[in-house]
C-alpha cells in the first residue's frame, strides 16, 4: 500500500522584505538583510521552502541602559552612554541589524528633540555598516514630531521604521514613503486589527511588500502563547492566499524579558531556580527560539550572549535548501 502524501500545499507565501541599502543601492550599509519568502509553516522542510533564515537585531537605546535588568546591563554598561560605540559593538557581537530605540525622546525620559534624535540616527549609521531599525516612543504626538526628522536623516538607507498603529499611522507612512523606508505595522495581539491596519496603510500608498508586522510581544511565561497563536493564525491566512497577511513578522522581545520573575529573581530568593546569569540568558534565548517556531522572521533582543545562543540554535535546526524535499 502506498504511503499517502500528507504534504500541505499552500497557495500563498510570505513577502520578502529587504532592509538596508549598500553604496550601489544608494545607501552606505556594508550588508543588507532579507527576511520572509517562506512557502509553508515554520520548520517543515519536507513541504516548504525557507529562502532566508530569521534575522537577529540588538537594541541600542538613546536613554542608555540604566533601567535594564542587571544581568543584561552588565554586557552593555561600557558602551551604554554612547550610541555610536554601542552600535559598533553590536556588530562585534554578531547582530544582523541594529535597532535604535528612541526612548530618550519620551516626555518622561528627557524629551530629546527631533533634531537630536535625527542626529542619533546619523551617528549610528556612521558607526555601523549594519542595516538599521528605528523604534519610536509609542507616544503618538512625540513620534509624529520625531520620526519624520529621523526618516529624513536616514534617507537612502532603506531602514525599517516603527511603529505605525491604527490610531496613528499617517505621518509615519508619509515619511517612510517620502524617504523610501520600510514600515512596522503594530497591532497588539489582534489579528483582525492587524489586517485592518495593513488595509489602512495600503490605502495611503504604502506597498504591502514594504510592511513588517509587529503583533507586540510577551516573554516566555508572560503571555507569549497569545502572541504565538496570533502569529500562527495570521501565517495560515497568509499561506492560504490572504495577501493582506503576507507580511513578515518582527518581535521586539528584549525589553520583555525583564518583566518575568523567573528571569530576574536572584538565586538566593529562589535557590531551586539556579544561577541567575544563566537563567536570564536562557530566558531570552528560549523566548527568541519559540518566536522563530511561531513564524517570526525578525527578532530584536537585548542580551548579546542570548542573541548568540539563539542564533546558533536556529542555525542548527534551520531547514537547509532542498534538504528533504
Amino acid at each position: 500500500m502506498p504511503v499517502p502524501d500528507v504534504k500541505e500545499r499552500y497557495s500563498g507565501s510570505v513577502n520578502q522584505v529587504t532592509i538596508g541599502a549598500t553604496a550601489e543601492q544608494g545607501g552606505s550599509r556594508t550588508s543588507t538583510v532579507t527576511i520572509g519568502g517562506e512557502t509553508g509553516l515554520p520548520m517543515l522542510s519536507f513541504e516548504a521552502d525557507y529562502p532566508h533564515p530569521p534575522a537577529f537585531a540588538l537594541e541600542v537605546n538613546t536613554a542608555g541602559a540604566d533601567d535594564w535588568h542587571g544581568e543584561v546591563r552588565k554586557h552593555v554598561s561600557d558602551v551604554a552612554d554612547d550610541v555610536e560605540k554601542w552600535a559598533a559593538q553590536c556588530e562585534e557581537w554578531g547582530a544582523d541589524l541594529v535597532m535604535l530605540d528612541l526612548t530618550a525622546a519620551h516626555p518622561d525620559r528627557g524629551s530629546r528633540s527631533p533634531q537630536e534624535c535625527a542626529d542619533d540616527v546619523k551617528r549610528v549609521l556612521g558607526a555601523t555598516g549594519l542595516p538599521l531599525i528605528v523604534w519610536g516612543t509609542d507616544v503618538n504626538d512625540v513620534d509624529n514630531n520625531v520620526l519624520p526628522k529621523c526618516t529624513q536623516a536616514a534617507a537612502g538607507e532603506n531602514c525599517l521604521f516603527g511603529t505605525a498603529k491604527d490610531d496613528n499611522y499617517r505621518t509615519l507612512a508619509a515619511s517612510c514613503l517620502a524617504d523610501s523606508h520600510k514600515i512596522i505595522a503594530e497591532a497588539p495581539s489582534d489579528i483582525n486589527l492587524s489586517k485592518q491596519l495593513h488595509i489602512l496603510l495600503r490605502d495611503v500608498g504604502v506597498g504591502l511588500k514594504d510592511i513588517v508586522m509587529h503583533p507586540t510581544c510577551g516573554a516566555l511565561g508572560f503571555g507569549m502563547v497569545y502572541i504565538y497563536t496570533t502569529i500562527e493564525r495570521g501565517r495560515v491566512a497568509a499561506l492560504s492566499g490572504d495577501a493582506l497577511m503576507q507580511t513578515p513578522v518582527v518581535v521586539n522581545l528584549g525589553k520583555e524579558i525583564g518583566r518575568v520573575k523567573e528571569a530576574v529573581s536572584p538565586a538566593d530568593e529562589n535557590p531551586q531556580w539556579g544561577d541567575l546569569a544563566a537563567r536570564a540568558l536562557l530566558w531570552e534565548a528560549a523566548t527568541a527560539i519559540c518566536y522563530v517556531q511561531a513564524g517570526t522572521e525578525l527578532l530584536i533582543m537585548r542580551n548579546p550572549e542570548a542573541l548568540q545562543q539563539a542564533k546558533a540554535a536556529i542555525e542548527r535546526i534551520w531547514p537547509q535548501p532542498g534538504a528533504d524535499s
Binding site: N192, I199, A237, L244
Partner: peptide, 15 residues
C-alpha cells in the same frame, strides 16, 4: 474561512 477585519469586503476583493 476568511480572516475578519473591519473592511473585510475590500480586503477580500483586493486579496
Amino acid at each position: 474561512k476568511q480572516l475578519y477585519c473591519d473592511d473585510y469586503i475590500a480586503a477580500y476583493m483586493s486579496s
